[in-house]
Amino acid sequence: MNHTFTWHGHSNFMIESGDKTIVIDPFFEGNPSADTGYDSIKSADLVLVTHDHGDHVGQAVDICKATGATLVCLFDLVEGFIEQGLAQDKVIGMNIGGTVELEGIKIKMVQAMHSAANGAPAGFIITYEDGFCVYFAGDTGLFSSMELFGKFHDIDVAMLPMGGWFTMDSKEAAFACKMLGCKKVIPMHFGTFPILEQNTSKFSEYLEGFAPGTKMVEIEPGKSATIAR
């Protein structure tokens, strides 16, 4: 099965796999890197939110209402999304370490080293029916348990922040690839605002040094890349 990743800037991604579509951290309004509005998402099965910062929650509720998608988030955030108009059966709350299976896709919530106004920040390890495994780190600094993720999961693609300031920088993100043992990496959370790293040139150099077996898949905002297992 092919898996197509579309980046809308920052940490805003859509992953299309067969007839299933996952949207993650859909920050459109106020995102200077976004190439389009949230209403461009015409179909979605699942919307994943890593934490409650506005540049990650984005238009998650709007997309779920428009497409009928189910929202997956930390349990502590469920009530807030219901108050915004989502039906109770359309919000799945979980917690770090747990795994839910939706639409035939296993979604494991893992920790992230960051902050949150409510609950805790998280990442997701997504495993498709064909075994294709994606690690979406969310906003995070480098932490040693990433090595355990690589031991428990055969990670095909890691989606890692590398912009610095609010998350790990390019050097640390490259070292994360070494710990994860991922086959490919898609860099994210860079270039959105002036205080972040603006391109992947340093990341590419560090990646060659720390994890030469990991291939970088760079996607421009509004563009897509298709990856097969």
Rank of each mutant, 00 (worst) to 15 (best):
T21Q: 07
V110F: 00
L48H: 08
S17K: 14
K65C: 02
L77G: 03
H53M: 13
S33G: 13
E101H: 00
Y38E: 03
S33A: 13
V91I: 13
F27G: 03
V78T: 13
G98S: 15
D45H: 09
S43P: 01
F28D: 01
M113V: 14
L46R: 01
E83Y: 11
T36C: 08
E83K: 14
T127E: 10
G80F: 09
G123P: 06
H53F: 11
V91C: 14
M94D: 06
A116F: 05
G98Y: 13
L74F: 07
F81E: 07
I125T: 10
K20M: 07
F28R: 00
T127Q: 12
E103P: 00
K106D: 06
I125C: 08
G131K: 05
N118Y: 14
A120L: 13
S115V: 07
G138L: 04
K42C: 01
V61K: 00
T70M: 07
C73Q: 00
P26W: 02
V49I: 12
S43A: 10
F75R: 10
M109I: 12
C64V: 05
V134I: 15
Q84D: 15
L46M: 15
G93S: 12
V91N: 09
G138H: 09
M94K: 13
I22Q: 02
I105F: 08
F28K: 00
D139N: 12
I63T: 04
D139M: 07
E103M: 06
Y135V: 11
P26H: 01
F136P: 02
S43R: 08
A87I: 06
H114M: 09
P121N: 08
D55N: 15
Y135T: 08
K65E: 04
L74E: 14
M113I: 12
G54M: 11
Y128L: 14
A44W: 00
S17G: 14
F75P: 00
E129M: 03
T36P: 00
S40W: 03
T21G: 06
S33N: 14
Q111A: 15
G93D: 11
D139I: 03
A60Q: 01
E129S: 12
N118H: 15
L86R: 02
V72R: 09
M113G: 05
I126L: 14
G131P: 05
A69N: 07
Y128Q: 11
V23A: 11
G58K: 09
K20E: 08
I96H: 08
H51Y: 04
G80E: 11
I22D: 01
G104Y: 01
Y128C: 03
I105P: 04
I96C: 13
G104A: 08
T127W: 01
V47S: 05
T50V: 12
